[in-house]
């Protein structure tokens, strides 16, 4: 109960800070008026509605998507290092969008953003095949290194394509580390729907994923088909990760940091963990983004760098807690 209250508080603080803080500081009253008593002549209202609100929505979609995708991934692979960013699923989505824009000549429109889904799906399948996850629990080392390789390959290709098109440094950074700065140009409505569908699939299959965690023989005995569950999980991960990348670029580490916290707060019931992951993920991205906008104002640190600064130490922490036997 205490945890739930804390969680809700954290979430509201994150949302409020996103709307209030910036080069033009606003008060809570301004935020209220911007939505409920809009005054077109007030520049603060305009900033809140046209810049910060899209940023908020994009941050929530990305954070909730990556948080839940990480939780599903970790539950299915039983690997505490699984994260859509580290395993190259984000990079797959980003790569597909950038290649789509290259081939068709359209700059990234909503249609191009939809390519994030096949990109994420193919990268997930590749990393799980190479990482050896198909044979049950793939070793954390193998899966992580497969992710490192897929990330390196796809992000190198993304860099090459973007540099060859003489795009701005800002576009380059969006597709390599992720950022909320482009939020008002991203297809937020469509990606919100994709996120909801992915979350719905996750919620439906959650009990079956838990059954699988007991061991596939036992799960079969209880009437669960491992293949079907894994395929549905893949679909859910793809939808949620794809949506996140389409609105905010490839942001790593949210899916690594959030799931263990969600396990603790959700007390090992996967459906509860999913809800907690969505809230925590959203809060994490919003807070990281707000801090990133504050520390070097008026410039800003992209949210993907902020999550990496927090996430990399968390990665080492998780590695140190792995039992030596779990590595091989």
């Amino acid at each position: 109960m205490k945890a739930a209250v804390g969680l809700v508080l954290l979430f509201f603080v994150a949302v409020a800070l996103t709307l209030v803080v910036g080069v033009r500081n606003a008060g809570i009253v301004d935020v209220w008026q911007a939505f409920f008593a809009f005054d077109a002549s007030d520049p603060t209202h305009a900033v809140i509605r046209s810049v910060r609100a899209p940023r908020l929505i994009a941050g929530l979609i990305a954070g909730a998507g990556l948080g839940m995708a990480g939780t599903v991934m970790q539950a299915v692979t039983r690997n505490p290092l699984a994260d859509p960013g580290l395993l190259g699923v984000n990079a797959g989505a980003a790569f597909a969008v950038v290649v789509g824009a290259l081939v068709t000549g359209y700059a990234d429109s909503g249609m191009m953003a939809a390519l994030a889904f096949p990109g994420a799906a193919i990268a997930s399948i590749a990393v799980f095949l190479v990482g050896g996850a198909r044979s049950g629990a793939g070793s954390p080392v193998r899966l992580t290194l497969a992710g490192v390789a897929i990330n390196a390959l796809l992000l190198s290709l993304v860099s090459a394509i973007i540099l060859s098109r003489n795009e701005t440094l800002e576009i380059f950074r969006f597709w390599v580390t992720g950022s909320l700065a482009q939020a008002n140009a991203r297809p937020l409505e469509a990606m919100f729907i994709a996120l909801v569908v992915g979350a719905g699939i996750s919620a439906v299959i959650a009990p079956r994923i838990e059954a699988l965690a007991l061991g596939s023989t036992l799960a079969r005995g209880l009437g669960t088909k491992p293949g079907a569950v894994q395929l549905s999980a893949l679909a859910a991960i793809t939808l949620m990760t794809g949506a996140a990348v389409a609105v905010a670029g490839p942001i790593a580490f949210v899916g690594l940091v959030v799931p263990p916290l969600a396990r603790r707060i959700g007390r090992h019931v996967l459906r509860r963990e999913l809800v907690v992951s969505a809230i925590l993920g959203g809060s994490m991205i919003l807070l990281a983004d707000t801090v990133g906008r504050l520390v070097v104002a008026p410039a800003e640190i992209r949210v993907g760098i902020m999550t990496a600064l927090v996430g990399a130490p968390a990665f080492i922490f998780v590695v140190r807690r792995l039992k030596p036997g779990a590595l091989t």
Binding site: L81, I305, L309, L322
Partner: peptide, 27 residues
Amino acid sequence: QSPLTLILVGIGIGFFASAVSSFLVIR
């Protein structure tokens, strides 16, 4: 120290150093 732990921790340090580099570049 197991070699695999060294490699994984090393990957983590690499992530962190790259993030710090990107952070400094913005300035």
